[in-house]
């Protein structure tokens, strides 16, 4: 693998008195989609939040394009070219879909200022957005909100997308729409770090995979290798199934 776009080296994160990440090592290669798997409570969300500067690492380094993000604030990290779709989607319910999108288009003062070509492309991925453009985002269904959240992350080109469980609670039809959208996104050469629990969804998209457990990355490799090795799946993911029964 060439020099990775994002590299976590022995990252520890504390939330208050709790020691959550116990030395996470993770590499995300340029132009690839890396899936982060792991059981509930493994530390996936905490890893994304640490990258985004919403928690600060207590030890270790978060290197993005060679620069250590550890001491930067969240807005500065966003300005380095990282966008983030949180687990709860972070939709501004009281604002319209248009206003939600406008916030993500940093240079635009009004919705009309959003790059029309890019917007058409996003509408192509998620046609529902166009229809609900002027509606308060809080009135949308869960799947539609997820589309707004992802659309917001890509309305301007970014170097890296961090996406936390986009398939959570979505109907199969909408999940398939998401898969298609991510496939299209991959064609634009965007680097993506995707947290998923839904292995079926992850398998369709991932180039590489990392599996977390108990605040550490316990396996890293190609998706192809994991998808083709039922024993390994059993060991890594079956184990996780058993763990939260």
């Amino acid at each position: 693998m060439s020099t990775p776009l994002l590299k976590l080296e022995a990252v520890h994160t504390h939330i208050g008195a709790y020691h959550i990440l116990h030395g996470v090592d993770l590499e995300v290669a340029h132009g690839e989609l890396t899936v982060l798997l792991g059981r509930n409570g493994a530390g996936k969300t905490t890893t994304l939040r640490t990258i985004m500067g919403l928690w600060h690492p207590s030890a270790g380094r978060v290197l993005f394009d060679g620069e250590d993000l550890g001491a930067l604030g969240t807005p500065e990290i966003a300005h380095r070219g990282i966008s983030y779709v949180p687990e709860n989607m972070g939709i501004f319910a009281e604002l319209t879909v248009a206003e939600n999108m406008l916030l993500a288009a940093r240079g635009a003062k009004r919705p009309e200022d959003i790059d029309p070509k890019r917007l058409e492309w996003v509408f192509g991925l998620f046609p529902a957005l166009k229809r609900f453009w002027q509606h308060p985002a809080g009135l949308l269904s869960g799947g539609q909100k997820q589309m707004v959240a992802v659309a917001r992350a890509i309305i301007e080109p970014r170097k890296l997308l961090l996406i936390d469980e986009p398939s959570k609670g979505l109907a199969p039809a909408i999940i398939q729409n998401m898969v298609e959208a991510f496939r299209e996104l991959k064609r634009t050469d965007t680097t993506i770090l995707l947290v998923e629990q839904n292995f079926n969804f992850a398998r369709q998209l991932g180039d590489r995979v990392a599996v977390m457990d108990d605040g550490r990355v316990v396996h890293a490799g190609t998706m192809a290798a994991l998808a083709g090795d039922e024993g390994l799946q059993q060991q890594l993911l079956g184990l996780s199934l058993a763990a939260h029964q």
Binding site: L54, T74, P75, Y84, P86, G90, L95
Partner: peptide, 10 residues
């Protein structure tokens, strides 16, 4: 509504 998200947007 959500200040963390505003910061995440830059």
């Amino acid at each position: 509504q959500d200040r963390e998200m505003v910061e995440s947007l830059g």
